[in-house]
Write a protein that binds this DNA or RNA. Structure first.
Ligand code: SF4
Ligand code: SF4
Lengths: 162, 162
DNA sequence: GGAATTAAGGATATAGAATATCCGCAAAAC
DNA sequence: GTTTTGCGGATATTCTATATCCTTAATTCC
């Protein structure tokens, strides 16, 4: 059970977009260069964010991406689910139906305990991600990243933001 | 991010093993028939349980598997990790190292905030699974499964337990 | 208006993981 | 000694993640 690397990419890109001045856009090309990622493939992750309405886009030179809402109104789960999908990690294949002792026509009223417990754990994972806002991440990064690196990155981004 | 179906298989098999009388064993063949699963592949899941020391095995006719500990001393996480591995679901590829603004020789003191938050969610998932004991599952199932099915399954298993 | 740049989406190729089967070995039962 | 069993290795198949390429339409700038 491993998350796609696109999840990491999307989270980092959103953190960068959160630092953009009002109304500016940043292109896939810039985001790919900044993170050292394949531009074409990163583009797929950004398209996922776009489809989830987390970011706004615009075309043409000086086009690119910006957050669709304030960074305090976007949480980790929004981003992770946009890329990874909303499906639960445990999928029930209903193997209890294969029990040879099962009476013909027997119909289970509800999902069995195994599935419910696994889904509960899944929900705990989602809850944790839901509680962390993108703005929280930016706050932590701004404290932890070395100030000179933080500032030079910021300048690098602004130079390329349309 | 989807768990292997072997996780479901292992959980169901453990629930069955928990109902075995003291000292009896149940074979892969019986477990595969009971759940309608491919015997050879289910065997791999059971081998994982064995390697994790969750079950004891014995060879020969009347051989098979039994729990290595009481069902109240085995939790869901034990079983899930035995099959799925203990690796975290979020793997950090350290893309921040590709930042072109990064000073040469800069070395990060600790994993960045993105990774820590994702790992925190992972830990919440594990915590939930850790809190549920195998005996809890058996308790729920014994209440929810129709009594006649529960009993006939029990008899079916006993007939094949060595 | 025309050239350049961009996001979007479809098609396709590659790598790796999950799923599944088969075989040979050693231990245990009879 | 024969059968049954768990175990591990080897292999095949299917599916997903990863990655690239190409076309289209919108936008900017000249
Ligand atoms: S997880 Fe529950 S519902 Fe799904 S197959 Fe197993 S017993 Fe049935
Ligand atoms: S998750 Fe954190 S440590 Fe990992 S690459 Fe991203 S910034 Fe770096």
């Amino acid at each position: 059970m491993i998350l796609k690397s696109q999840v990491e990419w999307a989270l980092h890109c959103c953190a960068i977009l959160a630092g953009l001045p009002e109304g500016r856009y940043l292109s896939t090309k810039a985001l790919a260069e900044l993170h050292g990622l394949p531009k074409e493939y990163l583009s797929k992750a950004l398209q996922s964010l776009s489809q989830a309405a987390l970011v706004d886009t615009t075309l043409g030179p000086s086009g690119g991406y910006r957050l669709a809402r304030s960074s305090s109104e976007i949480n980790f789960l929004d981003i992770v689910e946009a890329v990874e999908g909303k499906a639960r990690s445990f999928t029930c294949t209903n193997i209890r139906e294969n029990n040879p002792c099962r009476p013909a026509g027997y119909c289970d009223s509800k999902p069995c305990a195994v599935a419910r417990i696994m889904w509960e754990a899944d929900e705990a994972w989602r809850d944790t991600l839901r509680r962390v806002r993108l703005s929280d991440l930016v706050g932590i990064l701004s404290e932890e990243v070395r100030p000179d690196l933080w500032q030079s990155t910021f300048e690098w981004v602004l130079k390329r933001a349309g």
